[in-house]
Write a protein that binds this DNA or RNA. Structure first.
Lengths: 356, 356
DNA sequence: GTTAGCACTCAAATTAATAGAGTGCTAACA
DNA sequence: TGTTAGCACTCTATTAATTTGAGTGCTAAC
């Protein structure tokens, strides 16, 4: 069967209406709602076809229609391509209004706090649950290492990554370290490791350095481990969420089992990593950088009644983080995408030009 | 009216039964449940008295009785005094078994992670929601300050507090700083500030130091601000929660409005600070260090159907943090208190003797 | 002071009745 | 051939009526 223009128009009308009301949509409603001037009977016929094609379904025999995941998919894809076209048009215009004053004017030293607050704002504005991931550091380069003796046998390793993410790790050492050795170590590490990514600081390099350090070998490799751990802890995607309770605003998500499951995954966060991982390209809209996962596509069972929309922000050249919205499938995709574009734009500005 | 021994026994039986079943308790049940050998009619009379005294009430006229907050209070206080007596007996015994091997054997460098994991364990074990506060640092002393130049105009301030809590703050400076000045500053700050608490690093001291620094005055006071901010950020009580979804296991908490409110306060965390604040003495049981808040006593409106039990752990001499359990009023107080004692004991050990 | 017995109350569960939205199908129409 | 009016049918949701049972309070007897 063909999905001709009329069928498509009807499908869109059904979805649009369902997004607003959350109730199954009947043929009579569509007959009035659209400018097609068709009777409800005709609509009914078309609806039967659309159902056969898998875009809509009836929760029970005498009810109106509800979009299936495939239906949502079609709708969202259409919207994305429209958005894309619109953006191409406005591209140059945007270029000019570039340097409008950012509303947010604060110190950037505590990225965590900025992101957490951003998440809060986003959740408040959209009435959905928001999710933001720390920029992924596994591509981040080591900028600076500082070893400091805090106690005679306690060595503090301060690791600064490109983009000025700072991490600390405390090392317990066996024997006292004299200031001279400490200085030597500091120089050694900064010479050898600066500019390297976690991947590059691999076992080979650890071995090499330990060898060339002679009798300090054991200590050196322990320090390298600590550094790797520090980078790694920045690396294990850190996720901020906000507005978890917004799900209770949508009846289809707020029965106890579903809500509990959802909030559980939000609390645990592990399952969210997949959605916020840096899977650029895959499934992503090239122009808008927006990804949409509907129901099963999230591959998180507790979210099978949800949709997730994510966008990417640039933290440093080549280092990305993600912002996401989790809500019911019948979320206001358009509004959500706008809000996300807005947030990522803000973050981009804030991080890329830290000082005015 | 007098609360004689028999009435008390009946009251306890009612509460005990209600804790288990969550259903209103009738006179017949008590007549069998206790070893008092009284008929249900007699129990009924006593119950009427207990109701008049405000310890129990009926949700509706033809239902069994449910404990009031006052009833719970009596029950809990009784239990605490029993526990206290028991502890006094076991005091010397405990002394001997002191150095049993701790089950938890991990690196202590990341306090945050330790606490978060502890919270998780606690929530899993008890089936309630757990809450742990970072040790409060406003009594913490500054141990060490390290200034490092990360970029020509970016100064990284690493602050180590007693107990090896590490905080970082990035400072943007106007003009380049030469290595010599940096060294001078490092020495200055470590000489002047080490061992001081946030309170002691007040405006006077800031002013003094800035004055004696001459032309570097502006920079010095900016750095002091950064240090204060770093300490302050460790100071603003940081709270870890876990097992928020456990509340759905208790019907009396899981209707959407209540659950939403509760989870909201758990997410926001601000409202929890009151419960976990270091209000030692006030309302606290001297021997056990356990505090119990029932319903209204939490002074958090979303928790008026909850009870909160907290215990104190010692992080460093004189520096305390709190561990708490949030659950329905009919929680298993005994189990909860034991679990809390267990956790605080573990934390005490872990922090007080970091190395074996 | 305790207890048996009885009338009474009220929430919760069950059943019955009703209303209404929406469908599918058929037959007529342009 | 595509569109439409009309009608019988289906199924949910709502409301009302009924029943059940746990539990009480009170009285009278022990």
């Amino acid at each position: 069967m063909e999905l001709d223009a009329r069928k498509k128009k009807i499908l869109q009308a059904i979805i649009k209406n369902y997004l607003e009301t959350g109730e199954p949509v009947g043929s009579r409603t569509i007959s009035k709602y659209t400018d097609l001037n068709l009777s409800s009977a005709t609509i009914r016929n078309e609806m039967a076809d659309l159902e056969e094609m898998g875009y809509i379904f009836q929760p029970h025999t005498s009810a109106g229609r509800i979009p299936t995941d495939a239906g949502y998919r079609l709708y969202v894809d259409d919207m994305l391509s429209e958005k894309q076209a619109a953006m191409e048009k406005e591209a140059h215009v945007a270029e000019q209004t570039e340097d409008e004053p950012s509303e947010i004017d604060r110190r950037i030293d505590r990225i965590e706090e900025v992101l957490q607050e951003m998440a809060k704002m986003l959740a408040n504005n959209t009435n959905y649950t928001s999710v933001i991931s720390m920029p992924q550091a596994n591509k981040n380069r080591l900028k600076f290492v500082q070893l400091t003796l805090v106690e005679p046998t306690k060595l503090l390793t301060t690791v600064v990554l490109e983009g000025n993410i700072v991490k600390n790790e405390m090392i317990q050492v066996d024997k006292d370290i004299d200031p001279e050795t400490l200085l030597k170590l500091n120089i050694l590490f900064n010479n050898e490791l600066n500019g390297k990514t976690l991947r590059e600081i691999n076992f080979d390099m650890a071995a090499n350095m330990a060898d060339s350090a002679g009798e300090l070998g054991a200590l050196v490799s322990e320090i390298i481990n600590a550094i790797a751990a520090a980078i790694g802890s920045a690396d294990g995607i850190q996720i901020f969420t906000s507005g978890a309770t917004n799900i209770f605003k949508y009846p289809e998500l707020s029965d106890t089992t579903k809500a509990s499951g959802l909030i559980g995954t939000l609390e645990e966060k592990e399952l969210l990593t997949g959605l916020l991982a840096d899977n650029s390209g895959e499934n992503e809209d090239e122009n808008t950088g927006i990804q949409v996962y509907i129901g099963q596509e999230t591959s998180v069972s507790s979210m099978e009644d949800c949709a997730v929309v994510t966008a990417t922000y640039e933290f440093e050249k080549g280092v990305y983080g993600k912002v996401g919205i989790i809500g019911p499938k019948r979320m206001d995709y358009e509004k959500v995408m706008d809000a996300l574009k807005n947030v990522t734009g803000n973050l981009d500005k804030q991080f890329r030009k830290p000082d005015k």
